[in-house]
Amino acid sequence: MDVFVQQLINGLTLGSIYGLIAIGYTMVFGIIGMVNFAHGDVFMVSTFIALILFLLLTAWLGISSVALAFLLVLVATMALTALWGFAVERIAYRPLRGSFRLAPLISAIGVSIFLSNFVQVAQGARNKPTPPMLEGGFTLFASDGYAVTLSYKQILIMAVTSVLLLGFWYLVQKTPFGRAQRACEQDRKMAALLGIDVDRTISLTFVLGAVLAAVAGLLYLLYYGVVSFSDGFVPGVKAFTAAVLGGIGSLPGAVIGGLIIGLIETFWSAYFSIEYKDVAAFSILAIVLIFMPSGLLGRAEVEKV
């Protein structure tokens, strides 16, 4: 029971991070129908931006308040990663609209390879450990020498995720941009006829995805305390799995999928084998795509001739 509760907490924390990344995949797929393969690497770039900014703030400018530093880093990382999302869409995807079916995916793979190697060349191949931040937590209950703890980090991660998701939901459901975004998702040509700037909306969608990935990147850095240039691939695939599981194109689906993937991963590691935890994630991806490609909350794809 104790182990179960502890894993539940850990799984939800991890799942929040996956959910944040998954939104980027699902939004982009919803609006232009492409798998943004480079999204995981944008997330990885954001972890490095956050890491360097954090080091700059604490070591050079001498900001000692963790809360202030966290807030500053969060905002700056979101802004800088948004620029990456914008640039990637502009350079690598926009010229391909109307090209053949596989072109955007191949281009995205190119971007993914470029980003991870760019960071490797710029920052070196070694793992980058960070000094421990925000240690400690609450002990919920303890029995038989096993204490179930809820660390401050986990609280922070879940709180930040919930606040952001609420804000994001408001943005998509209640603002003119959200309306334009949903319109483009339903029918891009019709939206353009009705005076929506489709290119701008798509660009903003990428920027928003990158912003959420940046938040996930900072939280990931905080949670694991170590990043490397190759960290984009596996979390990226897991987040994509989450998006597919939740039903690609559906925003609540992405979050629910993220939580489920996080839970499966932690429980699998705790009860079966930690070595095969990535196999579990990849298998779920394959199984979901083969047997229920529309996912939990997604709409079934209608084939138009």
Binding site: I91, P95, L96, I106, S107, G110, I113, N117, V121
Partner: peptide
């Protein structure tokens, strides 16, 4: 050799465009 894969990625994007 460090830049090999970097150029690979760029070449893939450039080729698609």
């Amino acid at each position: 050799n460090e830049f090999r894969l970097l150029l690979f990625g760029l070449a893939m994007v450039a080729m698609m465009i």
